[in-house]
């Protein structure tokens, strides 16, 4: 390569700097700096005038030590975990099933199914939240009508309004919307498996189930792991759906409160409690730590053990 010299060896490679500068500057200023600054702010506290002073771990002690703070933090963390588990147990298996079916050879209407099933994923979470709010609303009664048709009308409850069902209902709405993502990523991975391999297995006497279980699934495990960590990051960063359907208070009685909504309330305040940027930064840093633990677990615990096979 002609331009491999750097710095002191040859002429300073100005063009490399010019190519990199705009992206690195904007990215650093509006992404990296705020992330680091948020972590810094979490060690400060603000007085009534807004002036901030160093406070050490005081904010963390408050959130994890003060009974009220602690209760709401643990509640949000627990709810977020439930939110994530519903995605892992429903969204990703359903996505895998759909991808496996879509990748069957000689399937008619393949691209039609693919396009239509992926459609809700493209829409705004806020819009989807409202759509389901209407559909599940006892006022409109459309869910009751549908349940009546299948003879299950007695099952109907205002799922979004009840403390014990609201969170799972919202999780399932999110699953419904985003099932297209695991589906399409796993589908793409399945397409990369050469036909020779499945044919060789067929000759070896494998049926469709064997081929899926022994050949395809092991080969797409890295993709499934990646889909899982992406789900984890997205879930612990979620906010829009809860905010749109339940508002910042994540009712009823905080039963749908997750990290994102807790962060928003802490930052901007609600009802009687005043907003606090430094406490908000603390919650954000804790969210960052949760995500970091997940990512590190993925990078060192999962990804290293999974081989990516050259195909």
């Amino acid at each position: 390569m002609k331009t491999t010299q750097t710095g002191w060896l040859g002429r300073f490679p100005w063009h490399i700097a010019v190519f990199l500068a705009p992206a690195v500057l904007i990215y650093t200023l509006f992404m990296i700096y705020p992330l680091l600054d948020s972590i810094r702010l979490s060690f400060f506290t603000a007085d009534d005038s807004g002036a901030i002073s160093y406070a050490g771990f005081a904010n963390y002690v408050t959130i994890l030590g003060d009974p009220e703070w602690r209760a709401s933090f643990l509640n949000a963390l627990y709810n977020n975990l439930v939110f994530f588990l519903v995605h892992m147990l429903v969204q990703n298996p359903v996505g895998l099933l759909l991808a496996a079916l879509l990748s069957l050879p000689r399937l008619r209407l393949r691209s039609t199914y693919r396009t239509l099933i992926f459609m809700p994923t493209m829409l705004s979470v806020v819009i989807i939240g409202f759509v389901w709010q209407l559909i599940l609303s006892p006022l409109w009664g459309i869910s009751e009508t549908l349940l009546y048709y299948v003879g299950l009308v007695d099952w109907f409850e205002p799922w979004l309004g009840q403390e014990n069902t609201a969170l799972v209902t919202l999780s399932l709405i999110s699953v419904w919307q985003f099932v297209g993502i695991p589906m399409i990523l796993i589908y793409a991975a399945l397409l990369l498996i050469p036909e020779d391999l499945t044919e060789a297995a067929e000759i070896d006497g494998a049926n469709h189930w064997h081929i899926f279980w022994h050949i395809k699934l092991p080969l797409i495990l890295p993709t499934i792991a990646m889909v899982s960590i992406l789900t984890f990051i997205a879930n612990f960063n979620a906010f829009d759906l809860i905010y749109a359907v339940k508002g910042a208070l994540a009712g009823p009685n905080f039963s749908t409160d997750i990290m994102g909504t807790l962060f928003y309330r802490t930052f901007f305040g609600f009802q009687l409690q005043l907003g606090s940027p430094t406490m908000g930064a603390t919650v954000a840093t804790l969210m960052f730590l949760v995500i970091l633990v997940g990512v590190l677990f993925y990078l060192f615990g999962v990804q290293r053990r999974l081989r990516r096979y050259a195909m």
Partner: peptide
């Protein structure tokens, strides 16, 4: 360095972004 943003959501820096 440029890939960090794929894994870390920018929302976590919202407090400082608003300040900025």
């Amino acid at each position: 360095y440029m890939a960090i943003g794929i894994m870390v959501p920018i929302r976590l820096g919202s407090v400082s972004i608003l300040q900025l």
